[in-house]
Amino acid sequence: VQGRQLAFSDRRVIYAARNFVPVAAQRGDSRYSGLFQQLGIGPHAGYRGVFITPDGAKLGESAALEDPARLAPEIAMAFRSYRAQFYKDELKAKFGDPNATVQETRDVLRKVAQMVVEQADGDVLAILDRPGLPTELRVAAYQALADLGTSAAVERLVEDAAGPDAATARLAGQALASAPVGAAEFLLDRLDDDNAAIRLAAYRAITRICEVPQPKSDNFWTNAKEKRAAEELRRVRGLAEQCMTVWKRDYAPYR
């Protein structure tokens, strides 16, 4: 029991299980004998975690309840399988629905963000290119891109954060700053971009995403000597890389 408690206190397991509704039941509880039978759980089955869709279909199961290093990837794999099906069955058609209301589209974008449906980054980018896009949807689309943190999503956010329209740039920059640590990987190269606005947007975002202490103000980049600017970029790169190492080890595999 102690091993199980420890596994379910492990940050990898907690992170992998964040999108599941958790519930426990005794194998011998007669109220659930029909459910157990439907899930193929025999009368002598030991402790296990069973992954189920909201409709009651079994996604998989794990008996590795005392070993977080095995349990976390098994939970993540079950979720990825659910998410891929959910995107195909529920979300994909809604992106293409010309009659969808603003609220319906916003709800789909929120679902994409919440479930980290990386497959949908192209659909979200297409929404941003709609003519006359309401600000409410622009905000939701930017937030979805930030939460996905894919290469294409980050690319669009940094371009818009450095764009000529101040209001749009602010919205994109705010969303980008809330991206997961993995997004920083796609921003590091932009610190050396030919375009000063891109460099600044990338710097601002990386320092926020990786919680770099004492970031320089925008004025610093206008006035700093080349040597000091290079030192600052070296410092930020080093801290960002440390932060990404932890992310790649403890979180990225369980997204």
């Binding site: 519930v23 039941a25 975690g49 069973v50 189920i52 909201p54 996604l59 959910f86």
Partner: peptide, 28 residues
């Protein structure tokens, strides 16, 4: 750690409402 409510019907209702999958801990 993760809290484990024990009401399966409520968990199914919650999963349907939020379109999230369920992690059922079966205690042998």
């Amino acid at each position: 750690g993760i809290a484990w409510p024990r009401n399966v019907e409520q968990a199914i209702a919650e999963a349907k409402k939020t379109q999230r999958p369920i992690l059922l801990l079966v205690e042998g």
